[in-house]
Design a protein around this nucleic acid. Sequence first.
DNA 1: TTGAAAGCGCTAACAG
DNA 2: CTGTTAGCGCTTTCAA
Lengths: 342, 342
Amino acid sequence: MTERQTQHPQRGRAPTLIDVAKVAGVSPITVSRALNQPERVSEKARAKVTAAVEKTGYLPNMLAGSLATQSSRLVALIVPTIANPIFAETVRAITETLEQAGYQTLLGLSGYSEAQEQDLLEAILCRRPDGIILTGLNHTDISRTRLKAAAIPIVETWDLGDQPLDALVGFSHLDVGRSVGQYLLNQGHRRFAAISADDQRAEDRLAGFIQVLDEAGISPDAVERLETPARFSQGRQAFARLLEQEIRAEAVYCSSDTLAQGVLTEARARNIDIPGDMALIGFGDLDFAAHTLPSLTSVQINGAEIGYRAAQHLLSAMTGEHPPTEPVTIDVGFQIVKRDSA
Amino acid sequence: MTERQTQHPQRGRAPTLIDVAKVAGVSPITVSRALNQPERVSEKARAKVTAAVEKTGYLPNMLAGSLATQSSRLVALIVPTIANPIFAETVRAITETLEQAGYQTLLGLSGYSEAQEQDLLEAILCRRPDGIILTGLNHTDISRTRLKAAAIPIVETWDLGDQPLDALVGFSHLDVGRSVGQYLLNQGHRRFAAISADDQRAEDRLAGFIQVLDEAGISPDAVERLETPARFSQGRQAFARLLEQEIRAEAVYCSSDTLAQGVLTEARARNIDIPGDMALIGFGDLDFAAHTLPSLTSVQINGAEIGYRAAQHLLSAMTGEHPPTEPVTIDVGFQIVKRDSA
DNA sequence: TTGAAAGCGCTAACAG
DNA sequence: CTGTTAGCGCTTTCAA
């Protein structure tokens, strides 16, 4: 009398394709086809399946599906942080674009650390993503090896360089720094101070800035370097330190809008008018900067565009529209924008 | 002469457990055990397996593993947006906590829409997450049905209420509104204006605010309602509209720091001193507000704490430390903080 | 401590 | 248009 009921789906077990097939009175494969390639099934069968799915509350098990198909419809995305709105925008654009194409996004936060990125990568690659989007060009050797072994489309973002793993969507940080320097020189400034975070891309921008000053025979009066991620309050403090050292620059370069905002706040507290008494330049996302830094100049990056282009490229690579491509580089550019004073 | 090579892992195919087993000279199951329960395997076998893994560059296929184990080590997380730093913090805290416990996070952005949440849910539940974290208490009926059918631990966040699906980690938005009203009344203010977004939680806060004024026999001179997500510039414009209507409140209530910041900017442009001439109160994350709104009062929420507690609860539920629990409610609270002027 | 057999839920390939 | 068979890569019995 201990016979188990196998007539209808058991309590506590999610209904499977087989349960649906039984209820619909067709074979499992017909259910599978009705769900995934409806055009390859008679209208009658389709109706029976639809009803059975409804009745059982069936939800496909994608773990099984992906295993059989060898395609997970999953994309891995690794960014340093989402606390910085500039990356939040990129993440949003990517998830949105991929979602529409039927892909899900597995998010990893590396905290600007290559080691952490490597750990994330190991965990994530086990899930067999169909593609992967990374931030920057710097990865550990082990990461590079694993990525190559995974043999899936890769897009690196937020930078430009010679040796991308696969596709690359970004802009040149050295050029950003150079442009900023040139811009400030053109404004007639000759005495500079710089406040910069110490991650690779911020360093690249700073290097460009210093390079262009150097070409004009100028070197900055002071360079303050802060640990990434550099916060508002650190920017404020760094500027205060400069003032205490009697450094009176005509223009202050900041590696990010966040830092520039700190400088702005400290300047206000000391009745230094920006941009009247001193030029101040930041770097960040169009939207964010417009909202929080209405009274200064900034290098504007379109985080969303980077995301869209990266996702679109990845999609076309994953759906195999082009064969194992040559590495592609997309330069999304940047611009220096002078906003009205608040 | 068209015989296929099956001797060693083929090019283009990722090595499997069986490949590793062959190289190691043991059975597949021994490899599995060496990897997942090393203590149940002889030291000798373990060494052989480790070497073979190294040599083949083997990476476990979690799709297969999860299918066999019926456990994905995946957690679904749905938030309205990550553009708002308050949610970004929660997301960070959650992914970090789960990562340490060996879980990955599948992120969905609902854009404050229940319909979109439902779509995300359908896609995500197909991947058989072991647990799920949602924002707020409002879900479509279909979402509720699916969530119950999934039979996995659920944590709802950012709100408090009577009918949680399972666990609940948040605070009372009505109480926030009431506290703000009481605070401003205690300061001696009697003429108020309110600028609020129109999502459920902002509406709840506003209702609390109006309620407490009402109890004091006061009604606000004006209430501006903005569509969620409400941006900086809209807050600024809303305040400008109030001024044009000759509404001169002693205190302005804003449903978020972002809006308050817009008001602050417009006030500065018109030489209205905050908090000297007019009180202004916002709502948001401690860190964010401290960075961007140094000169006003704000209700402070700890987004990271909500994330930590939610993730911790979910972990203990998933690892089955407690049996199918009674619904748990965790009130993380909030506080009103007056900051120094910049 | 190790292995053989069976199966997780689904779909590709082939037949009918 | 529909069904049968076999297998995706792993782990769970159970037995040696």
